[in-house]
């Protein structure tokens, strides 16, 4: 018998009598001001929040905040950023190592934890939001869900993904004596632009 069959037959012999799955449809967030909740949580975890009316406001904020950025990748439609690349045509993804700022789209944000949901369709290649020095995310439809339950309900209605990620704030570590340091292996900052 191969290992697969050995493992499966041992499990079949040893697993207890079947128990039911709980109904989790009742879990949902409290009714509250999701914009202010999201802003508070994102700020607490080291992110920056901008509520904006249109792309011009985003472009202006980017110009001020990231005036030092030399290489910018901008994957957001209708957003014009001076000297930014709008597609990654170089198949050698390792060459992204000097991207100072990546601007990407997210489907929605989650108030309880500050996260945004991104998928491979909007963010190509996958490594971009991790390898860049700074990350900016635009929530085009301004959607903020209260909790992860609503988030997964939404994901179930969206197009299937090959890769997706919740990103909540800049990369960080507290491995040295529990001192929080922002900028571990990924971006040193995360700015979220919510269109309202």
């Amino acid at each position: 018998m191969n290992s697969r069959d050995k493992i499966l037959s041992a499990i079949a012999a040893n697993q207890p009598e079947k128990t039911a799955l709980p109904d989790i449809s009742g879990f949902k967030g409290a009714e509250e001001d999701l914009q202010s909740k999201y802003a508070t949580v994102l700020t607490t975890i080291g992110g920056k929040i901008y509520f904006v009316k249109d792309e011009n406001e985003i472009a202006a904020a980017v110009a001020t905040q990231f005036s030092q950025a030399k290489r910018i990748v901008n994957l957001v439609d209708n957003l014009h950023i001076e000297n930014a690349e709008t597609v990654i045509s170089d198949p050698e993804i390792h060459n992204l190592k000097n991207v100072d700022l990546a601007i990407i789209k997210a489907k929605f944000a989650v108030a309880e934890n500050g996260a945004v949901w991104i998928t491979e369709k909007d963010v190509q290649p996958r490594v971009l939001p991790f390898i860049c020095e700074h990350l900016a995310v635009v929530i085009n439809d301004g959607i903020i869900f209260s909790t992860m339950h609503e988030a997964y309900q939404k994901i179930a209605t969206l197009e299937e993904y090959g890769y997706g990620s919740f990103i909540a704030g800049p990369s960080k570590t507290a491995d040295i004596e529990q001192s929080l340091v922002i900028g571990a292996h990924g971006p040193r900052s995360m700015s979220v632009f919510v269109k309202i």
Binding site: N113, Y161, G164, S165, F166, P170, S171, K172, G186
Partner: peptide, 8 residues
């Protein structure tokens, strides 16, 4: 509230 990255 969540890890920075929860990658699927």
């Amino acid at each position: 509230p969540i890890t920075t990255y929860s990658s699927h």
